[in-house]
């Protein structure tokens, strides 16, 4: 079978999507109202990457999985109480902002440094996983920038599957238009894979896995390096949440065919 992979999943925390997200202007630029106090979750896009990474590692003997995450340490610890129960992992914590308005270049630089500093990592075996988007601001650039910093030129975005081959190469499915996938064959690691949803469901919480993970997660949080991400030179001209659209008509006794036709028309309109 193939050579083992060193899978690094980059994932930050985002406010629980059920919370009220209200942009405000803080002392260092745009922020969300009460952001620190809102319950947080692991970024859903990156979560898919984590589950896929864990699955890959489970099936390729000798492979390893690290979760590299930059967020306020206390916030990250709280999120780990759930994430740690999902899959076996080793956490590399970077104490820094998790706000969607943090500079992606500086964030990528800090994360790349944290990845390089992982003891025992073989960058030639590296598969850098993350979300192709983010639930915070959907800039979707941080992962690519980390790849650039680490000199990884094989980058895939919108990934839904990775299939290792016998010769050490792997096949990647990337989402393209029209519900189709683009199939690529990559000669081997290192590579960057920005995941879409993948194919795996969210694993159930398993406290036994959590207890095992926590033996390394708590020390990792304690020795988290501090990343100072500056807002200097950054300027957001406008910040707003997507507008909710609600156009309601009450029409009685409309045939199902007409309703369907109207929906299709609405979907296909510009």
């Amino acid at each position: 079978m193939t050579n083992p992979y060193h899978v690094v999943v980059c994932a930050s925390v985002v406010p629980d999507p059920l919370q009220t997200l209200e942009p405000i202007t803080g002392p260092s630029g745009p922020a969300l109202k009460n952001e620190m106090m809102l319950p947080a979750i692991l970024d859903p896009w990156a979560s898919h990457a984590l589950y896929e990474g864990a699955n890959l590692v489970k099936h390729i003997a000798g492979s390893k999985l690290w979760l590299v995450s930059m967020a306020p340490k206390a916030k990250l610890q709280q999120v780990m109480m759930t994430v740690a129960q999902k899959v076996p992992l080793q956490l590399v914590a970077v104490d820094g902002p998790s706000s969607g308005f943090a500079d992606a270049h500086q964030t990528a630089h800090a994360l790349a440094a944290a990845i390089r500093a992982i003891a025992g990592i073989d960058l030639s075996r590296l598969l850098l996983f993350g979300g192709w988007e983010s639930a915070s601001r959907s800039a979707g650039v941080t992962l690519q920038l980390i790849g650039e910093e680490l000199g990884i030129v094989d980058q895939f975005q919108g990934v839904d599957a990775i299939t290792p081959q016998e010769d050490g190469s792997f096949e990647v499915l990337e989402r393209v238009e029209g519900a189709r996938h683009q199939v690529s064959l990559c000669a081997g690691p290192p590579a960057v894979l920005g995941w879409a949803t993948g194919n795996l469901g969210e694993p159930r919480n398993d406290p036994q896995v959590g207890m095992a993970n926590m033996r390394t997660i708590m020390p990792a949080l304690q020795r988290a390096t501090v990343a100072s991400i500056s807002a200097d030179g950054m300027r957001y001209s406008n910040v707003a949440t997507p507008k909710q659209q609600r156009q309601t008509r009450i029409v009685k006794e409309l045939p199902a065919e007409d309703i369907a036709r109207e929906i299709v028309q609405w979907i296909t309109q510009e």
Binding site: M81, T82, R204, N205, P207, M211, M214, M218
Partner: peptide, 13 residues
Amino acid sequence: RYDLQMLVQSARE
């Protein structure tokens, strides 16, 4: 008690 904190998350789910 992170063991209990995890348990809370698990039971909540």
